[in-house]
């Protein structure tokens, strides 16, 4: 099945992204993983998310490369390497055990419980006039959710501007341009 192939591709790409010696190759393999995720969304019948994921992926790559250009990666290993590795693997192991128990409670793959979503599917076109049910949910049924999401994005933009803007005041205080 092609979904398993894409998942294998994503896992390989993320391992390469984590273990690469160079920062730029790490970012590019990360973008390969994001492309695999976009394809997986397309196979899982979510074209909205596929478009959004693809576009956001390009933005990630541009911003990350912009951030790490002309910078080096120093590989160091300090004395507590063994302790750190063992504790990390213990943490991941405990997480996997709990996830295995929690996975039994979920419905089987391919047969979701559609208590709320069935209602949306039935009355989506008639009440909102939008043929795309996902857009109908995000912008009409649950519009407050999208409102708060927009607020978060706007706050992030203002935060980035505030973080970046500090540079003028530190380095040339006598100009006072902003």
């Amino acid at each position: 099945m092609e979904l398993h192939l894409i998942l294998l591709f994503m896992i390989c790409a993320s391992v390469a992204a984590v273990e690469s010696k160079d920062l730029i190759s790490g970012v590019i393999t990360l973008s390969a993983a994001g492309l695999g995720l976009s394809l997986a969304f397309l196979i899982l019948k979510a074209p909205n998310l596929a478009i959004t994921q693809l576009v956001v992926e390009i933005l990630y790559v541009i911003i990350l490369i912009r951030a790490i250009i002309n910078k080096d990666l120093v590989l160091i290993k300090d004395g507590r390497w063994l302790f750190n590795t063992i504790s990390t693997f213990l943490f991941i192991g405990s997480f996997l055990i709990f996830a295995f128990f929690a996975l039994k409670e979920l419905p089987n793959f391919g047969q979701p419980i559609m208590k709320v979503a069935g209602e949306y599917l039935k009355s989506g076109l008639g009440q909102t006039g939008s043929a795309n049910i996902v857009t109908a949910i995000t912008l009409n049924f649950r519009s407050l959710d999208t409102l708060v999401e927009t607020a978060i994005l706007f706050t992030a933009i203002i935060g980035v501007l505030a973080i970046i803007r500090k540079v003028g005041k530190i380095y040339d205080p006598e100009k006072g341009k902003r």
Binding site: L44, K45, A46, N48, L49, T52, Q53, V56, L59, Y60, I63, L64, A67, P112, M114, V116, A117, Y120, L121, G124, I133, V134, I137, T138, R142, D145, T146, E149, I152, L153, T155, A156, I157, G159, V160, I163, I164
Partner: peptide
């Protein structure tokens, strides 16, 4: 049809992830 509700939620999640990553990069 497949379940549209998780798709809407994940669409929100992608946007918030983008915002978080950009703030983290500027801090870095």
């Amino acid at each position: 049809m497949v379940d549209p509700l998780p798709q809407a939620m994940v669409s929100t999640s992608i946007v918030i992830g983008l915002a978080i990553i950009v703030v983290l990069i500027s801090l870095a």
